[in-house]
Design a protein around this nucleic acid. Structure first.
Lengths: 401, 401
DNA sequence: GCTTTTATGTCGATCGTCAAGCAAAAAGAT
DNA sequence: ATCTTTTTGCTTGACGATCGACATAAAAGC
C-alpha cells in the first residue's frame, strides 16, 4: 500500500522488537509449549502470544502439533520449534584432521564427514576445500544451499572471535590475520562465526551434557594441551582471544624440557601427547602418535601407565591453580589422551583435590568427555545458533524476510 | 481518568520499556548531550527523544543547561545527568578496618569516614554499627535518607553476589551464610549489593581509570593476597563466588611454609604481608604489620628490599600462569605492599614477561594503583549504580513512581 | 444430547512510536 | 538591519504492538 520513499511512508529503522524472538527462545529451550504455558512464562496477554505465534507459524519457524489431552476440555495444541526449517554448516579444523558437518537448527548432525587435512596448506586452499565438502554434504541430504542459516568454524589456534580472524597462531602458517569469517561470508551471505577449537569443545560439552553448569573448564589433552573457559555461561576468550592457553604455562622445575614454542618448561612440552610419544620412542618404545599411547596403556604397559599418571599430576597441578582462580563447578577432560581414564584422570584429580581449597573443590566435578569427536562440531553449530536464533535476529527475520 | 481494576481499564503489567532508561544511559556515559546528538546515537525520531527527555526531566533525573554556541543557529540545550538526584551508601569492610562513604549518583564521594573495626565482632554488631555511620554521614551533608538509591558493601571473603551472602569465609567468624544484603535491605528498602572486597577494587579501578579495559586483573597484596577478575567487562566471580583466590594457590617448592588456612605452600604464606612481617620479626627486625615493611624498604633496607623483590617474583610466577589462562590486557597491583614499586612490581613484571607467551604479553600493561584507599568505595558504589541506574530500572522508576 | 471445561479467534481501545510540518529562538553572514 | 542557518518546541495523523473482554470451538463427562 505505502510505496517506499514517499513522504509519509512509515519505515521503522529502529530495532524491530516484536517479541517473536522471545517466544521462539522459550520454545527452543523449554521444549514444546502450549499457548497457556507461554502466557505464564512471558507474562503477556493471550492475544499477544497468539499474534506472535502466528508470525512464527507464517515463517515456518514453529509447527503446531496435537497435545496429549489427559484433562477434559478442548485439547491443547503444542508449538514445537521447527528444527528442519534450515541448516547450519559446521567445521572443526584440526592441525592434520577436519570434521565437517551439516546440522539442523537444533544442532543435531544431519550429515558429516571426516578427512585428513593439513591446516598448513594455508587458508585459501583449506577454505576452498571446506566449501566443496559443505556442498557435497548439502547434496547428500538434498538440502538447498538457500536454507543455510549460518556457518561455524573451529580453528586450532587463537582467534579474534569478533572478526573471525586468527591472531598469531603458532601452528597455522599463513593464517595469521586472514579474514576467515569474511571470506566464507562473501561466499554464503550468512553469518559466519569462527573460534578457537577448544572454545568450541567447551561450548559443545556445555550444550550437550551440562546445560546447568555456568562455570566450567574443558581441557583438551592431545598432541598439545588447551583449555576452553566458560564463566557465567559465556565463553571467556581474553583480550586477544588467547585465553585458555594451558599448554604453555611454565613449570618452574621443568626447565630442561624444550617446547616447540621456543620456551623451556612448558606444560605441553612435559605432559602433552607429542612429548610423551617422543619420550617413549627415545626409551626404545616406538610410538608414532598420541593415540597409540592409549593402546599401550590399555594393554597394561606399566611404563606408559606411569608416564600418563605423572602427566596427569602435572596437568592437575596447573589446574589446581586455575581452580583457585576461576572457581569452576565442572572440569571436563577431553582429547585423545583423555581416554586413559585410570591413569590421566586419576593423576589430575589427585592434584586438584589435594591442592585447592575445600571451598573451591567442594562442588567441583572432574569428568572425562563422553562424546569425544562430535563435541567440536556441536560447539561450532552452537555459536552459530546462538547468533542466528537470538531473539533480536528472529525479530528481524520475522519483520523483514 | 480510568479507575484501577474496572473492566476495560488498561494497566500494563508487562515490562514497562519506555526507552527512558536507554536515554539516561547514554547521557550518563557520554556526558551532556543535545537532542540532536541523542537522535544520532539512538536512531529514533526527534519527537520520541523529546518525549523521553520530558519523562526524565519530570523525575529530576536530568537537568537542562545552556550549551556553548560555537556554531551559528539556535544554541543547543544540553541535558546533563543529575548526579545530585540521590545518593548511594558504600562501605568497604576489611578485617580490621572499614571505609564508609556516601556518594552521588555519579559515584563521586560526598562524605566519608574511616574507622578501625574488627569484622570478627560478627555481622549483627558490624552492620548495626555500619547503619549508624551511614546515618551520621547523611546528617553531615544534610541528605534525607529517602534519597538513598541503594547500598553497596565489600567484605573480605567470598560472597555469593546474587544473594549478598558470605560463603564459608576463612576470616570472618560468624558471617557464614548471614543474609547481609537482606538484613540491610530490610532497613533501607532499596537494593543492597554485597560483594568480595577485591572484586570491588577491580571494578573501582576499571571505572575510575581504565574504562576501556575489558579484561583486567586487580591483585591486592596486603596482609593476604587476593585478586579480582574482569573479563569481557564483567566481574568473574566463579561458581560459588570464590574466584580470584590467588593467596592460596599452591607453590610446589614451598611445602615448608604453613599457611593460616591449614595447607602448606600457599602463595600467601610465602609472599603475603603477614608472612613477610613474621619472617622479618624472626630475623630480629621487628615489624608490627605489613605497612611498616614499605617504610623500611623506602629507607633503603636491602634485606627488606630483597624480600619484597623475591615476593614479587613468586607472585609474578603465579600471575604468569593466570595471564596464559585469562589473557588480560591490564594487571593492576594494589594493597599496602603495592607501594613498594621498585621491588614488588619489578619482581612481578620480571616473571610475567619472561614466562608468558609473547602473544599474551604483547599488549599487557602491569601498573600500580594510583588511588589506593578510595578504589574499594568507588567499586561498591559502582555495583549499586549499575543496578539502580540500569535502563530497565530507570524505565520502572519513570513509569511508576 | 447437554453441560462443563479448556483452548482459540476476534474486536475496539490504548500506548509508544513514527515522519512530517510549522513556528520560535539565536547567532553568523550579507 | 535583514537574511540564512541551525536547533528546538509543539502538533498532527498514522501505525503497530499490546491489552482486556467477549464470542466461538472442541473434547470429556453426565
Amino acid at each position: 500500500m505505502s510505496a517506499q520513499g514517499l513522504p509519509g511512508t512509515l519505515v521503522r529503522p529502529s530495532p524491530p522488537a516484536n517479541g517473536a524472538g522471545e517466544v521462539l527462545g522459550i520454545i527452543r529451550t523449554q521444549g514444546p509449549c502450549s499457548r497457556a504455558a507461554l502466557v505464564d512464562l512471558l507474562g503477556v496477554a493471550r492475544s499477544t502470544v497468539a499474534q506472535r505465534l502466528d508470525l512464527l507459524l507464517q515463517r515456518d519457524l514453529i509447527v503446531a502439533e496435537q497435545g496429549g489431552g489427559g484433562t477434559r476440555g478442548r485439547p491443547t495444541t503444542l508449538f514445537r520449534f521447527n528444527h528442519a526449517r534450515g541448516v547450519v554448516l559446521a567445521a572443526d579444523l584440526g592441525v592434520t584432521h577436519a570434521g565437517v558437518a551439516v546440522t539442523d537448527l537444533a544442532g543435531t548432525v544431519l550429515a558429516d564427514t571426516s578427512h585428513d587435512l593439513e591446516i598448513a596448506a594455508g587458508p585459501r586452499h583449506v577454505l576452498d576445500w571446506l566449501v566443496q565438502r559443505f556442498t557435497e554434504l548439502l547434496d547428500r541430504i538434498g538440502m538447498d544451499p538457500s536454507r543455510v542459516f549460518g556457518v561455524g568454524v573451529g580453528l586450532p589456534g587463537p582467534v579474534e572471535a569478533s572478526t573471525g580472524t586468527p591472531v598469531r597462531p603458532p601452528i597455522m602458517p599463513g593464517w595469521d590475520g586472514f579474514p576467515v569469517a569474511q571470506h566464507l561470508a562473501d561466499h554464503y551471505r550468512v553469518p559466519v562465526l569462527v573460534d578457537n577449537d577448544v572454545n568450541l569443545l567447551a561450548l559443545g560439552e556445555q550444550r550437550m551434557h551440562w546445560p546447568d553448569s555456568e562455570h566450567l573448564l574443558c581441557v583438551k589433552v592431545a598432541t598439545g594441551i588447551g583449555m576452553g573457559i566458560i564463566t557465567d555461561g559465556r565463553l571467556a576468550r581474553g583480550a586477544q582471544g588467547a585465553a585458555g592457553d594451558l599448554g604453555h604455562v611454565h613449570l618452574a622445575d621443568k626447565q630442561d624440557y624444550l617446547c616447540a614454542c621456543g620456551n623451556h618448561g612448558c606444560l605441553e612440552a612435559v605432559a602433552g601427547g607429542a612429548a610423551l610419544a617422543r619420550r617413549l620412542t627415545e626409551r626404545g618404545l616406538p610410538v608414532p602418535d598420541a593415540r597409540h599411547i592409549i593402546g599401550l596403556a590399555k594393554q597394561g604397559n606399566t611404563e606408559v601407565a606411569d608416564l600418563l599418571r605423572q602427566a596427569g599430576r602435572l596437568i592437575g597441578e596447573v589446574l589446581a591453580t586455575v581452580v583457585n582462580v576461576l572457581n569452576p563447578s565442572l572440569i571436563i577432560i577431553t582429547g585423545d589422551l583423555a581416554q586413559a581414564q585410570e591413569q590421566l584422570l586419576t593423576g589430575i584429580r589427585e592434584m586438584i583435590y589435594s591442592r585447592s581449597l575445600p571451598l573451591a573443590t567442594r562442588d567441583l566435578r572432574i569428568v572425562v568427555s563422553s562424546t569425544p569427536g562430535s563435541t567440536g562440531i556441536v560447539g561450532a553449530a552452537a555459536i552459530v545458533l546462538d547468533r542466528v536464533l537470538a531473539p533480536a535476529a528472529i525479530d528481524r527475520l520475522v519483520s523483514t524476510g
